[in-house]
Simulated assay, not measured.
Amino acid sequence: MCNSKRWLTGLLGMVMCLTLAVVAKQDVEAGQDYEIGSYIVCTEDTNLFVLPDCNEGVVAPIAKNSIAVVVENDDIYTKVNCNGAEGYLYQEFIGYDEALIAAYQAELLARSEEVRMMAAMIQCEAGNQPIEGQIAVGAVIMNRVKSLSYPNTIVEVLYQPNQFGPADSQLFASLLANDNIKDTCREAAKQAFMGVDNVNGALHFRRAGNKEGIVIGNHVFY
């Protein structure tokens, strides 16, 4: 269970570069300090800046109602991390919306569970394969999520009838129930979820043999 909790924390940090800490509501005033690690809401379409000075270059745009995590306080700007982009946000554009933040946390939890399910499926399909082959299975799952020909969520892709055989197996159910998923399969799922695609968009795989495609380990991807 401890390993599971550490993995969950690491996954959420990698996916969104955030934590799941629940924070107390804060008053929003220019020049105030915000608790490091707390969630804030951007109240306007604006930019994250390289330094606490709007003339020193832009890291990335940040949209209204985006959720970010406080990294560091400054007099007029607050350094935040939003979807992996870290920069300074003008404090007048910082607010707090309990409903938005709660919805965001729920979304993070849902995504983390989907990735855990993908890791379990990778173990069922390619648990004895090298990490490249495990990532490849994850890539097929994510490619299907992106494809208009398949469902648009990981869960629906995994449970689509007559597709992933292990979805209805005792092994798959046991891996999820006991959370005894191999570390390599967890890592493969995270990488695939983050966009790693070592099969060039392939939507299918099978045991290597007569089928043409990308061969990785004992599987061919096509």
Results as ranks from 00 to 15, higher is better:
residue 139 A to N: 10
residue 121 M to F: 09
residue 127 G to D: 07
residue 146 K to G: 03
residue 136 A to W: 02
residue 132 E to A: 14
residue 142 M to N: 07
residue 119 A to I: 09
residue 148 L to V: 14
residue 138 G to H: 00
residue 128 N to I: 12
residue 143 N to M: 06
residue 142 M to W: 00
residue 120 A to W: 07
residue 133 G to Y: 07
residue 131 I to M: 10
residue 127 G to K: 12
residue 121 M to R: 08
residue 120 A to Y: 04
residue 120 A to P: 07
residue 122 I to F: 01
residue 140 V to L: 09
residue 131 I to S: 06
residue 147 S to P: 13
residue 134 Q to C: 08
residue 136 A to D: 06
residue 149 S to T: 15
residue 128 N to D: 15
residue 122 I to E: 00
residue 129 Q to A: 10
residue 124 C to H: 05
residue 144 R to V: 01
residue 137 V to Y: 00
residue 129 Q to H: 06
residue 121 M to T: 11
residue 126 A to V: 09
residue 148 L to S: 13
residue 131 I to F: 09
residue 126 A to L: 12
residue 136 A to Q: 06
residue 120 A to N: 05
residue 146 K to W: 03
residue 148 L to I: 13
residue 120 A to V: 12
residue 142 M to P: 05
residue 123 Q to Y: 05
residue 132 E to L: 12
residue 125 E to V: 02
residue 136 A to S: 10
residue 141 I to D: 00
residue 140 V to C: 12
residue 147 S to V: 10
residue 119 A to R: 02
residue 134 Q to M: 14
residue 146 K to F: 03
residue 136 A to E: 04
residue 142 M to D: 02
residue 136 A to F: 01
residue 135 I to L: 08
residue 121 M to A: 07
residue 138 G to V: 00
residue 128 N to E: 14
residue 118 M to E: 11
residue 150 Y to G: 09
residue 134 Q to T: 04
residue 138 G to Q: 03
residue 131 I to E: 07
residue 138 G to D: 01
residue 119 A to L: 03
residue 118 M to T: 10
residue 129 Q to G: 04
residue 125 E to H: 02
residue 138 G to F: 00
residue 124 C to T: 12
residue 146 K to S: 13
residue 118 M to K: 06
residue 134 Q to F: 02
residue 132 E to K: 12
residue 136 A to T: 07
residue 144 R to I: 04
residue 129 Q to V: 05
residue 119 A to Q: 03
residue 126 A to H: 08
residue 127 G to H: 10
residue 121 M to V: 06
residue 129 Q to P: 09
residue 123 Q to E: 14
residue 133 G to D: 11
residue 132 E to H: 05
residue 122 I to H: 00
residue 141 I to H: 02
residue 148 L to A: 14
residue 127 G to V: 14
residue 144 R to M: 03
residue 122 I to K: 01
residue 136 A to L: 11
residue 121 M to N: 10
residue 137 V to N: 00
residue 145 V to E: 00
residue 142 M to F: 03
residue 127 G to P: 10
residue 127 G to S: 12
residue 150 Y to C: 07
residue 126 A to W: 06
residue 123 Q to M: 13
residue 118 M to V: 11
residue 134 Q to V: 02
residue 118 M to N: 08
residue 135 I to W: 01
residue 146 K to A: 12
residue 129 Q to N: 12
residue 118 M to W: 06
residue 145 V to T: 06
residue 146 K to I: 00
residue 147 S to A: 13
residue 135 I to D: 00
residue 131 I to Y: 02
residue 147 S to T: 13
residue 122 I to M: 04
residue 139 A to G: 10
residue 140 V to Q: 02
residue 122 I to T: 03
residue 138 G to I: 00
residue 147 S to K: 13
residue 117 M to W: 07
residue 141 I to T: 11
residue 123 Q to S: 08
residue 140 V to E: 02
residue 133 G to Q: 09
residue 118 M to C: 12
residue 119 A to W: 01
residue 133 G to S: 13
residue 143 N to E: 04
residue 117 M to E: 11
residue 125 E to L: 09
residue 120 A to E: 04
residue 136 A to P: 11
residue 143 N to A: 08
residue 128 N to T: 15
residue 150 Y to D: 08
residue 150 Y to E: 08
residue 136 A to H: 03
residue 128 N to G: 12
residue 117 M to C: 14
residue 146 K to Y: 05
